[in-house]
Amino acid sequence: MTLEAGDIRRYGDELFDALVARRAVAPLTERVADITIEDAYAIQLRMNQRRIGAGDRVVGKKIGVTSKAVQNMLKVYQPDFGQLLSSMVCSEGEAIDTDRLIAPRAEAEVAFILKRDLNGPGITAADVLRATDYVLPCFEIVDSRIQDWKIKIQDTVADNASCGVFVLGGTPRSLRGLDLAVAGMVVEKNGEIVSTAAGAAVQGSPVNSVVWLANTLGALGIPFKAGEVILSGSQSPLMPVTAGDSFHCSVGGLGSCSVRFA
């Protein structure tokens, strides 16, 4: 930690205000040269405390920076995480108002829903398989409260891992007999296929991504509870979104998820 408690609070409040006002702020890394990732998580915590104080509730976690492409871009070779809050939940079929967001981009992912607590450290893939109630295809709509997405890793971590809103698909599937690493993902934007990939795009498997999260949260003393939703990381490129766009993803053995914007 290089920042004092007062600075942490101030930057957390600034990002909370930016979120509420839908007005982006200058990158923190341009203002605090030696800001650490630890500082950034402390700022994230403050920002989310403000949201909870305003009536929001934690419903899960998102894992970001899971693909090689994004890791190379940010020059960080591990994922990050943010909190999912009840106000981020959108329904499939509902038109998401782009005015709610600043600079939204869509990512297609697989979501896990836990049936048991995962108390790291020491969590293995076997524990995650056992603790998973079901998985669903989903879209995460990321958004940045940092101007023009000019983010370094500390900026995105402080900004709750750039989480915007998310949409879950409708068909729950058990992980039994399903190898998520080889499950193919097809993403369409306005009816045109824009990318295909497989679960291995996320840390070799979305399961590995959740293992990382459980152990990281455990080390930080953050609870990871039964019933939480975990967005395991993008299997598509970041796709810019404008009003009128619709996206569809389908995952082999898992079903599909749609999202549209107005």
């Binding site: 080889v182 296929i193 291995a200 389908s250």
Partner: peptide
């Protein structure tokens, strides 16, 4: 069998180098 969403993961010397789903071929 849904050939459209069937996933393929290629490794070279143990490292993942390419991924796709069946739809990459003409949908």
């Amino acid at each position: 069998l849904d050939l459209r969403t069937l996933g393929l993961v290629m490794e070279k010397n143990g490292e993942i180098v390419a991924m796709a789903a069946g739809a990459a071929v003409l949908g």
